[in-house]
Amino acid sequence: MSDGLNDARAVRVAEIMNDFRNLQYYLSQLRTSPTAEEYYLEGYSLLRQCTAEAQAILDAPFSSATTSPGGDAERERVQLKAIIVDAAVRRFQCQRAYLRAHAGLRWMNTRNSILHGQQPNASHMNALQAADSTLRMELLAITDAHVENTLRSADASQGKWLAEDPSLAQIQQILMSR
């Protein structure tokens, strides 16, 4: 029996998908132009990895049966709940890629400000190593719990309905099963 929350579920699907679309757009706009010597540096590799992850998320098929509810409120409820879960997992993945890419961009900007267009030399070594270390520390801080907290905090501050959003444990379980 339907519980009368299908309109709230439909709005939640739209909210999550809008966030997902915004994250995908940001990730698709990442452009870097490392030199041949820089191509395999940690930060540039990270940025390419984040872009590839975003594309893989887009390419993954929706994993639930998508039968047409045909006016049946109970079937609509089940379908909307499945879409909320799938969309929330995809948004989580994109948020993680976004946070990692943002750290990579900070690294790239720091590196550029250290080098001022020059080739790296011994006088840059300590500052470049510090930038690499900062990137690694930032990446360690981007845990699943941190990613989930950034999403939930933003949603809660905007007063969004979160009653049927999957928990972090559910998201992790789904990601491990893929």
Rank of each mutant, 00 (worst) to 15 (best):
A154E: 09
P69V: 06
A130M: 09
R75H: 09
I57Q: 01
C94P: 07
A52M: 11
R77A: 12
A103Y: 01
K160Y: 12
A163M: 07
D7K: 15
S33H: 15
I83P: 01
M176I: 03
N22L: 14
D86K: 02
L27T: 02
M108P: 00
A88Y: 08
G159Q: 05
H116G: 00
R21C: 06
Q172M: 09
A52Q: 15
L151W: 00
D3C: 04
A169I: 11
R100E: 10
L23E: 05
L58E: 06
Q55S: 08
T35H: 05
N126H: 13
A141F: 12
E74L: 14
L58N: 10
T35K: 09
Y25R: 09
R48I: 00
I114G: 03
S28C: 01
L27E: 02
S64K: 11
E38L: 07
A87R: 01
L168Q: 05
K81Y: 15
H146T: 14
H102Y: 10
M108E: 13
Y98R: 10
N126M: 11
R111Q: 01
A163Y: 00
A163R: 14
G104Q: 03
A127E: 14
Q173A: 15
R21N: 07
V89N: 05
E148T: 07
N109D: 13
L139D: 06
L23Q: 04
E164I: 05
L168T: 02
R178G: 08
H116T: 06
N121P: 00
H124M: 04
Q170E: 14
G70V: 06
R136C: 12
C94G: 12
A54Q: 01
T134W: 08
S177Q: 14
N6Y: 03
S133P: 01
H102L: 12
A169L: 14
L128M: 07
E38F: 07
Q93H: 01
A122P: 00
A60L: 13
A103M: 05
Q173N: 07
Q24H: 09
G117S: 01
G104P: 04
I16G: 00
N121A: 14
F62H: 07
D132P: 02
L41A: 08
I114A: 00
R9Y: 06
S167P: 07
D132K: 08
I171A: 03
Q129L: 15
E42H: 08
P120C: 07
E74Q: 13
T35S: 15
R136I: 06
L175F: 05
E76W: 03
V11C: 08
A8E: 11
S45N: 10
R75Q: 13
A122E: 11
